[in-house]
Design a protein around this nucleic acid. Structure first.
Length: 260
DNA sequence: AAACGTGGCAACCGCCCCCCG
DNA sequence: ACGGGGGGCGGTTGCCACGTT
């Protein structure tokens, strides 16, 4: 007895979205906000699966999505973050304002992976993500734990390192405008383990990960503007995480750090 | 001009986690 | 404490545009 499908396939329209469907979805979300994806299609008058609606909105219709080519600085950041995070497209997208995980994934698969291979850079193939890789128990085994609130209280503040929160920045802007529940519910911890770093991440021979700045104080909501300084800071931020694995330092949610 | 090959990307699929009752 | 549902995520598919022969 498997779980029920997210929606009945009968009578559901699939394939490319029409402009009318886009208009219906956009109009509904502008009036009622995001969420309740399962019931949204019916309420919005769409013959679509809720998941399809969510995907269409997240990847295409959201007003804060940046259009146009990915610039060299963004490309550089994607490469660096992929080196650290592997195929964690949503995490990577969270650090690229206006870009979606799907867009970055596609860009990687169609451009960057080939480009890097062409340049003779070694890309270690991603291995299948271990089951329950997000579980904290696994992370603890690896000696790297990005804590929940309990851990934060018990932690050693001297060695505290803040984990960048895997937040989709553009979504946060939307959330703040609409003050929806996602804001308070977005306590997603960045759940990483040493195992994940090394088994999933690509590996390039030109990156310099020896530079770390432990005094970083990134703003939680990054400015929309992108410049090389910001990109460098982002990379440093993730480099801290990487380095922390070596030093066996407990990690803390950056969000929670603001509450200290 | 037609056939074929290739690349890019929107959309779908299915697994998994987390929240809530 | 537990189970089910909703939502998020990464992997994959398939269509279409464009280039090449």
């Amino acid at each position: 007895m498997g779980r029920s499908p997210c929606c009945s396939k009968v009578g559901i329209h699939r394939g490319p979205w029409t402009s009318r469907e886009d208009a219906l979805l956009t109009s509904y979300i502008q009036n009622h906000g995001e969420g309740n994806w399962r019931s949204l299609p019916k309420l919005a008058g769409l013959l679509r699966c809720g998941k399809s609606c969510r995907l269409r909105w997240m990847n295409y219709l959201r007003p804060d999505i940046k259009r146009g080519n990915i610039g060299p600085e963004e490309e550089d950041l994607i490469i660096r973050l992929h080196r650290l995070l592997g195929n964690r497209w949503s995490l990577i997208a969270g650090r690229l304002p206006g870009r979606t995980d799907n867009e970055i994934k596609n860009y990687w698969n169609s451009h960057l992976s080939k480009k890097l291979k062409k340049q003779g850079l070694v890309i270690r193939e991603a291995t299948p993500r271990p089951k329950h890789s997000k579980s904290s128990s696994n992370n603890k085994k690896q000696g790297v734990h990005i804590s929940n609130q309990t851990e934060m209280v018990r932690g050693n503040n001297e060695n505290k390192i803040y984990a960048p929160k895997p937040t989709r920045l553009t979504a946060r802007i939307h959330v703040m405008e609409n003050s929806s529940e996602e804001e308070k519910g977005s306590s997603d911890e960045m759940e990483l383990s040493a195992n994940n770093y090394w088994s999933d991440g690509g590996e390039y021979d030109f990156l310099d990960t020896d530079q770390f700045n432990l005094d970083l104080g990134l703003d939680q909501v990054l400015p929309v503007q992108q410049d090389s300084v910001m990109l460098e800071r982002l990379f440093d931020e993730y480099s801290q995480l990487l380095q922390s694995e070596v030093n066996d330092i407990n990690l803390f949610s950056y969000d929670q750090s603001l509450m200290v």
